[in-house]
Nucleic acid binder design. Structure first.
Lengths: 134, 134
DNA sequence: TGTAAACCTTACGTTAGGTGTAGATTATGG
DNA sequence: CCATAATCTACACCTAACGTAAGGTTTACA
């Protein structure tokens, strides 16, 4: 019968963040406890963890917490019963897909550069050190 | 004979940043003009642009400007004549390669999630709208 | 029931990464 | 030579995203 089995400490540990960060996110409306006993200890369910994960991912994409605020619900709302928002959600998701693809491209380019540099360095390093197998 | 043909305005435009940011980076030691006429206008060469690009890439990797400060020189020093640093440079480059790969992985996972969400949304959207071809 | 760990609120502090602005100086085309 | 656009220095200011600290409350467990 217990709804919400996780307290803020455990949630923070699992999501690799701090309880203060979770408090902060709550103030911004990014996340909230599923229940509070009396006026006290926040209790969370698994979804809270998933939200934190999603927030982290979106941050890495370069979104500010304010921007995340605007889209996070779309990921967790009951899509089947919210017909009206679907088109909008779809647009936003496609938009983010585009961003992700751009970043993957960018990282891939950076990766190629890095590898080129590494090869170059290795060559120089080999030339400068005595060759043990010759 | 002109060494340094680019002024800060052009550099900023090309690198999609502001001249104030370039000033700021200069104060941090991330970048500097190749020459200054008298005590005035900073003049840059192509390398300055490349540095800004590299800084952007490293920022996207999650490095702070302070961390970037510590590695940026390695990308632009004359490697051939700085034998002693090669091993260290190689380590750092490999380290960054690992980070890039991790991020690409993470983004790919996020991408898959997004696509799954999009498919789901599309299905719901199709169901909710009249089918024109049937 | 006692107590220690975990949690609560409130309020102020901090750091990174810039941006704004004023007032002077420099460059450049006519 | 003059206008004006671009730069210069220097300092103050800003926001986001937390962190720290104080002092009180809840909860789990013996």
């Amino acid at each position: 019968m217990s709804i919400g089995n996780m307290k803020i400490g455990e949630l923070a540990r699992r999501a690799k963040t701090s309880h203060r960060t979770i408090h902060y996110y709550e103030r911004l409306g990014l996340i909230s406890p599923v229940a509070r006993e009396g006026a006290s200890h926040r209790l969370y369910e698994e979804e809270a963890y998933e939200r934190l994960e999603k927030i982290t991912a979106l941050k890495r994409l370069g979104l500010s917490l304010e921007e995340i605020q605007e889209v996070i619900e779309l990921y967790f709302m009951d899509a089947d019963t919210h017909l009206q928002g679907k088109k909008k959600v779809l647009d936003i998701l496609n938009n983010q897909l585009q961003k992700v693809d751009e970043q993957i491209d960018e990282l891939s380019t950076f990766r190629s550069d890095l590898i080129r540099n590494i090869r170059h360095m290795e060559r120089l390093y080999d030339e400068a050190t005595p060759n043990k197998s010759g």
